[in-house]
Design a protein around this nucleic acid. Structure first.
Lengths: 334, 334
DNA sequence: TTGTACGCGTTATCAA
DNA sequence: TTGATAACGCGTACAA
């Protein structure tokens, strides 16, 4: 069923059908009705593809993500897709992997598909290869990065205040009478480095020594909990640990449970993200909620607004909030 | 840059450029070289959209999923997307929600986008509304359902043997000297009902009484662990529980931990799916691994093969396997 | 208010 | 081995 078929059935021209389909003015009501009836009767479906060819607008958005299985990103991807769909866009999702090669080829693919815009999830996309790929392949469409930013004409960033957020976590731990706060995390992305910086700054400004272990794996289990062991060897006085994500913190509950080190009495644990993981470990994990659902919404609306010609701030930040659960001591009421 | 632009620069016709771009035979090697050079130089990108209009093939696949945040589905979605991409297809992802209305409108959208095929993730799509929507909107493209099936000309199903799998779980628990095995799960999907049936069959064939609680929520926490409390009230003798997914089993570890009921000594816990959740609870969860990565691969290859005209079995089943972890007693060696 | 004719970028058919 | 030409399904200026 094309508009031509409908046109023939209605005894009008294809242009008229096109006008009716798109609700454009200048068609006699009677004709509108006649055409509408046929449209319904035959359940006419516009060929969006052909439409795109003519209008140069595909109503498709590319969603670039290193790995959707990362719980942190899953939440964002969900929020982005559902909002985009409500706004009339469909989402082409691509798991690019963590290598820049994959990112580049994914970007190239999205360009070929003529997407109207691109959303990238994670600060891992904040790198030179991606930056060049954008100027190269995506210079004429808006790009929004969740939790990252690149200084380019057509790139927008929605950031989480992880730097300050982690500082607040450190402060909270001291408030709760922890005295030797450590940090364990990867340093592979801007985001992770910012968390480490937040920790560093907070601890130094208190005149405390740094107790930091850099992680080179995604889980503790796969390296037999070495980072935790090393932390306790280097800094046996440690009584609280901030992890760069909730999964790690959850893993740690098992580690300390097996060693009879009581959480939160002897050891305070704090995660980051407020993933689903936080609630199922025992004890439940206190975490820095960086509002993934909100961020997803913000990212999607930013892109849609830009596509509709509305001016938008190039960088905005979403404020994080600590969610207190069982893995740290409670506030003392006097 | 269109093939016309390149053609002009090369002093040949657009058809020739098209042939070179698509690697078709019948072009003089010298011409091929000349055109290739221009193609590279101007970094020509084929407009896939226009190509689709002409060839009637979009190289796009729709991925329908109730909610990608469900860890179980995330794994599948990842496997599907990455394999599809390798096969030259891009993936339009749609979170349809659990209501049939959303499913129907999502299917309609995919039809408008002229996707070459559709993959649905989860037995929740095994219902009449979807069945009708398929005959209505997707009758001319192949549909593959992960963990579900509909008896239609163009629908293929890749199933998990949850029925037998759960039976094996029950048997294993008896082997490990648990005597009063219970089951807790939702019954909202075919898949979940099959798990319950597997439990039922195994227990009945042993002449044991059923200890089953139907769940009406997605997590235990949100209903204040009522299902667990009720189970212990109705069947206080219970010494092992099979849950319809790992998340629930993980939640249960916290519940029993708080009540000083030792897992696995006093209570054995078994989950289903082998999600990431299994490894981070303490104790770690024994689970029925229904091989989501394998299933994702199988689903994607099935679709691709059908699209390439290869004949495929309409229903296949992937065999599950129990992964033993700390939440049940170990085998006794005599 | 409606229809004609053309363009969007590509592929396919046929003739040269 | 190559090139003209039509076709894919739709939008739109322009003419009627």
């Amino acid at each position: 069923m094309t508009i031509y078929d409908i046109a023939k059935l209605a005894g009008v021209s294809a242009s008229t059908v096109s006008r009716v389909v798109n609700g454009k003015p200048g068609v006699k009501p009677k004709t509108v009705n006649k055409v509408r009836k046929l449209l319904d009767q035959y359940e006419f479906q516009l060929n969006v593809n052909a439409q795109s060819l003519s209008t140069k607008v595909t109503q498709m958005v590319g969603l670039l993500i290193a790995d959707v299985r990362n719980a942190h990103y899953t939440e964002l991807a969900y929020a982005v897709e559902t909002h985009l769909l409500r706004s009339g866009y469909c989402t082409i999702i691509v798991n690019s992997g963590e290598e820049t090669d994959g990112m580049k080829s994914s970007i190239q693919m999205l360009r070929q598909r003529k997407v109207d815009g691109v959303i990238m999830i994670g600060s891992i996309f904040q790198n030179d290869v991606v930056s060049q790929a954008i100027t190269h392949f995506l210079s004429d469409v808006p790009v929004v990065i969740a939790n990252g930013y690149l200084d380019k004409e057509n790139v927008y960033g929605v950031l989480a205040d992880e730097y300050q957020g982690v500082q607040k976590c450190v402060e909270l731990l001291y408030e709760r009478r922890y005295r030797h706060v450590a940090f364990i995390g990867k340093k592979n992305t801007v985001s992770n480095r910012q968390k480490a910086e937040g920790y560093k700054n907070a601890v130094i400004s208190r005149g405390e020594p740094l107790r930091e272990i850099e992680l080179h794996s995604s889980t503790l289990m796969e390296v037999d909990y070495q980072p935790l062991k090393e932390l306790l060897r280097l800094y046996p006085e440690t009584d609280a640990i901030i992890f760069s994500n909730d999964y790690l913190a959850c893993e740690a509950t098992g580690f300390f449970g097996a060693r009879q080190i009581a959480v939160p009495e002897q050891m305070g644990l704090v995660g980051i993200n407020n993933d689903r993981y936080c609630n199922i470990s025992c004890p439940q994990i206190t975490t820095l909620d960086n509002k993934m659902a909100e961020m997803g919404l913000m990212v999607a609306t930013t892109l849609v607004d830009v596509l509709n010609g509305k001016p938008k701030a190039k960088r905005v930040m979403i404020l994080s909030e600590i969610i207190e659960r069982q893995s740290i001591r409670k506030e003392v009421r006097i």
